[in-house]
């Protein structure tokens, strides 16, 4: 199980022998008050639900690839993945930071309420779907249907965006450095303001990416779908 190279402040879970459940139960129950500040997850092997539901400040280092829902519903913790992740990384995150050194599959940061998700590589389809206040920074490209129905927070993309970006957007704001294949219903490109440039600079600094705010364009909601309108066509 755990215990390899363990010190008072550091714990190691080797998932080639320990269960994901042992890791999560430790993070939920034994961690608070234990003095442990660093948890290392070795041989994650693409397992699902690694380090989910953390409710305590701790640094978690995942040394390899994760499956679905890595760091799901995270609160307060800082989780770094030295590899790629499957669907729904940091889904419904409330606070804290999740950093993926590799690529992320679909629905990265879905419905996140807060905190920061940084993906150094590309993110696949539906990145930031239904986001509710989270900040997501993607170093590479994002796939189609990203930020669908995104309600609040920021999605910053250093590469290109796929089709139907920001479809049915609410109050979330998207910044894209590269090309946008197409915008979704009710999403529109808007002029960058000083406040936008400041926000982009702050997000880039948080992620540690060296781009200039002036390279980004802003996409936000045209707000034409906020109310049903008897005269509007029903194409949405």
């Amino acid at each position: 199980m755990d215990g390899v190279n363990a010190t008072d402040r550091r714990r190691v879970f080797d998932l080639s022998t320990a269960r994901v459940r042992d890791l999560n139960q430790f993070l939920h129950h034994e961690l608070p008050g234990s003095g442990v500040e660093q948890v290392e997850v070795q041989h994650p092997g693409g397992r699902h639900a690694i380090a989910v539901g953390i409710n305590h400040p701790v640094n978690v280092e995942v040394k390899g690839h994760g499956g679905y829902y890595l760091a799901g519903m995270n609160k307060l913790a800082s989780v770094t993945v030295h590899g790629n992740v499957g669907w729904g990384v940091a889904e419904n995150m409330m606070s804290g930071t999740v950093r993926v050194k590799g690529f992320a599959s679909e629905s990265a940061g879905a419905t996140g309420h807060g905190g920061t998700l940084i993906i150094e590589g590309d993110a696949s389809l539906r990145c930031g779907i239904s986001m509710k206040g989270i900040d997501i920074v993607v170093g590479g490209d994002i796939g189609n249907y990203s930020a669908f129905m995104a309600q609040a927070g920021h999605l910053l993309v250093c590469g290109d965006a796929g089709h139907a970006l920001g479809d049915s957007l609410y109050e979330a704001v998207i910044y894209v450095r590269g090309r946008i294949k197409s915008l979704g219903a009710d999403a529109q490109e808007e002029e960058m303001t000083d406040a936008d440039r400041a926000k982009v600079a702050e997000l880039l600094a948080r992620a540690g990416f060296g781009y200039q705010p002036s390279e980004f364009k802003r996409v936000a909601s045209a707000k034409k779908l906020y109310h049903w309108n008897a005269d509007a066509n029903q194409e949405y």
Partner: peptide, 13 residues
């Protein structure tokens, strides 16, 4: 099935 597994993990089964 994986989503349910995640919800169970978060709430300790």
């Amino acid at each position: 099935a994986i989503k349910i597994e995640e919800l169970r993990e978060i709430t300790d089964w």
